[in-house]
Design a protein around this nucleic acid. Structure first.
Lengths: 340, 340
DNA sequence: AAGTTTAGTTTAAACGGTTAAACAATTAAT
DNA sequence: ATTAATTGTTTAACCGTTTAAACTAAACTT
């Protein structure tokens, strides 16, 4: 490995001090420095292929211009899209991103946070898993800037950027009701995460508002660990009960895809026999035999807002907290329109 | 922001030198250090919540234990899966990953490499875009350790981990031939990237071996920029020509999905009217009306091999290069079997 | 008793930058 | 001519570690 060339090397060759090299290469003290000297320094830096050592700079200025991004799993398309948006937005602010996948585990989150704190990231963007409340409190107590994205915990007063899951679900359910479907089922994940609970709550609220009682009877919550079987079973139950459902609302991406696979195998006509709405989008929907109505989360805004908020938070001493809620959009396709 | 506590803080409180603190916390000089003192240091470190400053350490030891990962686009499932595998494998070796999306642009790649070099990553894993040969030569000349993944350039003697695209394509084509399909079309991307060219070459080689002449007549290369229209048009042409194709082989994921969407809209029976094989897997295939035969790339092995090779390369002075080729696997489903 | 080991710890320089303060040499002001 | 301001540059400390080398005091040797 060739030696990296440093300011010292440049300084020595030109017989000046490293301070001067630093001032010149950083464009500081412009009005004081001799133009010839400045030019010489710049030329030599260029010629030698000088690359500033960001590590040394970070140590000195106590900032790394790095964001720690902790998501559930970077290989999941939702996380990956968000990561890309955050990467781009961070770059616009001269920040770099280090990422980690926590697999919805509080322990792994803690591990990752420790590692990234050692590496002195300036702040975190976190999709916090269930059970990470204490961890987040601890972070807050240590005055580490961070922003929760997608997930949140109402008892914690911290920065968040989330979408209005309640409203989106209610809107989707209302849409189905307006289309004339009254028996509407919902599949959701069984989890304590509030953003998921909000989806169920929005669904139920819409049913109640439409005058339905027993609004939970067609809501099935499945266990992530046993997702495939439970989705199939839940759909079978909802379709074969005394009052079968006329429409189904999937609480997320993965449930939707598994559900659609099963529905296809049942040879059900969409939307004649069953209407469908899904939370989240997926290019997989395009291969389904009927264009699928879905809720589109404003991922770009979500990611951009998180970066913006984090960077503000890094810049400010006073740790005020900010909660941003974004609205999702219902993309209506054939799968939810009986009378098209 | 609370002050981070350092070795100095611990040393001062206990009236010892920072050197001693360093030795104790790093478990060095174990046989020399007084056990009581060691215990005191460890306890105080724990009590104060000491976190080593990796930035300072990196500066001193001239290693960051960080890998720069540059892929086409982290939001693309192929990249994202690879990123996850590399993340995990890197973590097993105590490495952290900084990633960047280069969007198949040599300029962006260069930018990213510069940034990450400033941050003194120990090495790179790169999915190098078209036209980055010079850049890679320059990297090599500077003795920066790196490994190319997925893509490669035969004229460059550098570390690579790739799959055997030629063999995989030939195998897929042979499979179709064995099933009794003789008129086989292929859709591939129009690009100079060798790994794509190899896919076309494998396809043609299989046809030639089967005694076909004019082996390129059913090969359509589409432009990425105008992908959707060109895929539709290409399929139409292949199906409506004097000797229509009986089977089609998609050169990658995105082509396959777009192709399948179009094929569905044409109400073609699979595999009776048209057999299908795709390069790459996708959970989207599951929503198609016929289980799709596809080539599965050994992503886990690919990522793991890349990390392993990179870390070896970082450790060695002598810059020997290593080229690892992995075989893909053909997953045969109904879409390519006429006589099931 | 003098010399040699051993144990336990400290000293000090280094990594590659940043930056407030000091300095010397001009030039301008009074 | 003296003082003050300006210009151009250097000095030196610091960021938080690591680590070779030095040091001291006690414990063995012979």
């Amino acid at each position: 490995m060739k030696k990296n060339i440093s300011m010292k090397d440049i300084a020595q060759r030109l017989g000046v001090s490293t301070a001067l090299v630093s001032y010149v290469l950083n464009g500081q003290l412009k009005d004081r420095i001799n133009k010839d000297t400045a030019q010489k320094i710049k030329s030599l830096a260029e010629e030698l292929g000088y690359r500033p050592n960001h590590v040394a700079k970070s140590l000195k200025i106590n900032k790394t211009l790095t964001i720690g991004l902790i998501l559930a799993d970077i290989s999941n398309p939702f996380s990956a899209s968000l990561a890309r948006i955050i990467e781009d937005e961070a770059k616009r602010h001269e920040y770099t991103v280090i990422f980690g996948s926590a697999d919805e585990s509080a322990d792994k989150s803690e591990d990752l946070i420790r590692t990234l704190m050692s590496r002195r990231v300036d702040g975190f963007i976190l999709a916090a898993p269930e059970g990470s409340e204490e961890l987040l409190s601890a972070l807050k107590k240590q005055d580490i800037p961070f922003v929760l994205i997608d997930r949140y915990f109402p008892e914690l007063q911290v920065n968040t950027v989330t979408i209005n899951n309640f409203q989106a679900s209610a809107e989707a359910t209302n849409h189905l009701l307006e289309q004339g479907f009254s028996e509407i089922g919902m599949l959701n994940l069984k989890a304590d995460l509030l953003h998921l609970a909000e989806r169920s709550r929005g669904y139920k609220a819409a049913l109640i508002q439409a005058g339905q009682k027993d609004e939970g009877k067609n809501l099935k919550e499945v266990d992530e660990k046993n997702m495939i079987e439970e989705v199939h079973q839940a759909i079978n139950e909802l379709l074969n009960q005394p009052e079968p459902i006329q429409a189904i609302f999937f609480g997320n991406n993965n449930l939707a895809i598994e559900g659609l696979i099963h529905i296809r195998s049942l040879n059900i006509r969409i939307p004649e026999d069953l209407a469908i709405v899904c939370f989240d989008e997926s290019n997989a929907y395009n291969l389904f035999y009927c264009p699928v109505t879905y809720i589109r989360q404003p991922l770009a805004k979500l990611g951009q807002a998180a970066v913006k908020l984090l960077i503000e938070s890094i810049g400010n001493q006073e740790r005020s907290t900010n909660n941003i809620t974004l609205e999702a959009e219902l993309i209506i396709q054939k799968s939810s329109q009986k009378y098209i």
